[in-house]
Design a binder for these strands. Structure first.
Lengths: 347, 347
DNA sequence: TTGTAGGCGTTATCAT
DNA sequence: ATGATAACGCCTACAA
């Protein structure tokens, strides 16, 4: 049998003191003799003693745990998307440095167990100190109950409303506008867009930014220059095909995601259209592959790690100040000019 | 103030029974009247009661939590790699269905807190029922202590030895051999390889499989046909360049990762070498991008979700049977023939 | 400066 | 079939 788990009682016994003293010594209370303290600390480290999180959480009403809801089931291939991956890294980094661990909710709803039902129940079950939501539907009634509760929430890429709910998101509108401006400055006047899903916040904002900048540049908005996609490769390829069929095809296209931009590139290549000589393309996201694409994709970089860190920060702020303003953090995106954009043909 | 957390005592009070009865009713014990049980269950659901995991974990010595160590710091951009992403999804799926949640260790070592030191201490701190290790160094002494302990471990893509340690891994050697065979059957006789890091298990196995199949095909092994890479794009591109400089360049190359294969493709394109007409390339992994590459990459698909599920299974098996054999699961890889392989030139 | 004891929310062992 | 009550490991008044 392996060595029994070492409890505070054991440390106390071996140290010849009471459990109270051990607790105080280890938790840095002032009222403990320096000699006793260092002796106990040393003893604890020798024994590799670690307080049981469960016990501590029970009495402290603090778990040092941040829950993460990341939908990944049917119709939610989101965890697939590299985006959330990056966010997770940032989250882990920031929250980890602050002494928190991450609880990734996995337990299937509807199972036998308790705490498997609502988001709220699951959060309370583990007594998480805060929750990060990614890829969930903000209109879901269960989400609503969570937001209305006492548990601090922060959404990544979703607009969350609630007394203790903040959210972080990229500056999608400005980013989209930046893309259009870049294209306009290059001399393009026929600029199309391939949109993301318009029921998502980012999808709408990127379209909005596109239209706003068109206006700012005094370029006409044309309905046929705006074709819908779903963020994924195939939809981008299909959209590009539609654009190419237009009587007056665009000389540049802004795709609301890199995957779609890459799909567009593929279609263009298939049609024998040279990029960027005959057609300029800019994406959104800056996924790892973008810079390796052929030609390397000009795109708007989302700071995925930064979003994760910002989400962590929002939570931490809320945790140390009960009534901190539920912040909404909008992170800038950065235009990465690579090789898919150039002046329009005949310039 | 939000509604106070509902405890079992509250349910008991409202139900006019003792806490013991509530506990028994909710946990499906037989010795409780049918009437009382259904009444209490209904009451509990109305109140949205959820037992506190901490309290339960304390008395049951079971946390329904599986810890996940995923190194992601300096020199460990692993969480970056799409591979672990997929594994995480599989893990979540399998373990979630079995009623477990995932604890992603994030807390920085060396911090003030307890339980931030060794892997073992952190595991015990949270009382996780098992641990999944990814991207860690199996020779690390701290890892050794964890493996020697009573906590069930399973490594993904790393060979773990310990009384309660299993591991899951792709059949790298067979996969590599399969790649070479595919190439040989196409008629290639000058087959080179770009290896992964040889200090990793997969790196060595893929090289081993390559050599074994060369032998099986009665093809000579040539030192200059084996050039080292680090799994990433740039190393693949560089390696391909070296191969091209050879007096007698290979007609086919097996790269130990898709990223390197893609890098090789890039170099070939830059050198004006047509793929697959003049050069065949096969990768390993089947990352999402592989099928969208130009031309679509022939590669060995690793079942990332499967690895995650297998890791979950190994843990579950161990948990329900104290002395189950520490399994080692080797998952098959699948050859995805796409468009980067063809018979050698002049055939 | 240190020891003692109550309580956090559960489950499990006795009684009844 | 149900009600007390003792753990589980820890923190924190309160006493000493």
């Amino acid at each position: 049998m392996a060595d029994q788990r070492i409890t505070i009682r054991e440390v106390a016994r071996l140290g010849g003191v009471s459990v109270g003293t051990v607790s105080r010594a280890l938790n840095g209370y002032p009222d403990v003799s320096e000699e006793t303290r260092s002796r106990l600390i040393e003893l604890a480290r020798q024994l590799d003693y670690t307080p049981a999180a469960a016990a501590r959480s029970l009495v402290l009403e603090r778990s040092q745990l941040i829950g993460v809801f990341l939908e990944t089931g049917e119709g939610h291939p989101d965890l697939q998307h590299p985006f959330f991956h990056g966010v997770l890294v940032g989250l882990k980094e920031r929250l980890g440095a602050a002494g928190f661990d991450l609880l990734l909710f996995a337990r299937e709803a509807g199972g036998d167990g308790w705490g498997s039902g609502s988001y709220l129940a699951r959060s309370r079950h583990h007594g998480v100190d805060g929750v990060v939501l990614m890829g969930v539907d903000p209109r879901d009634a269960e989400i609503g109950r969570l937001l209305a509760s006492e548990v601090p929430c922060v959404g990544v890429d979703i607009e969350l409303q609630g007394p203790h709910s903040a959210y972080v998101i990229s500056d999608n509108a400005t980013g989209a506008a930046r893309a259009v401006r870049h294209l306009a400055e290059l001399g393009h006047r026929r600029i199309a867009t391939i949109t993301g899903m318009l029921e998502t916040h980012p999808g709408r904002d990127r379209l909005r930014g596109y239209r706003a900048e068109l206006e700012a540049q005094k370029l006409p908005y044309r309905d046929e220059y705006s074709v819908g996609g779903d963020y994924y490769f195939d939809s981008g390829a299909a959209a590009m095909a539609r654009l190419l069929e237009l009587p007056e095809p665009p000389t540049a296209v802004f795709a609301a995601s890199d995957l779609m931009a890459l799909g567009a590139l593929r279609t263009a290549a298939g049609a024998g259209i040279a990029v960027p000589e005959q057609l300029s393309v800019v994406g959104f996201d800056d996924i790892p592959w973008a810079e390796h694409a052929n030609p390397p994709l000009t795109t708007l970089r989302q700071d995925k790690h930064g979003l994760g860190r910002a989400a962590g920060d929002a939570l931490l702020r809320r945790l140390e100040d009960e009534d901190a303003e539920p912040a909404v953090d909008v992170l800038p995106v950065e235009l990465m000019v690579r090789a898919t954009t150039a002046p329009p043909p005949g310039t």
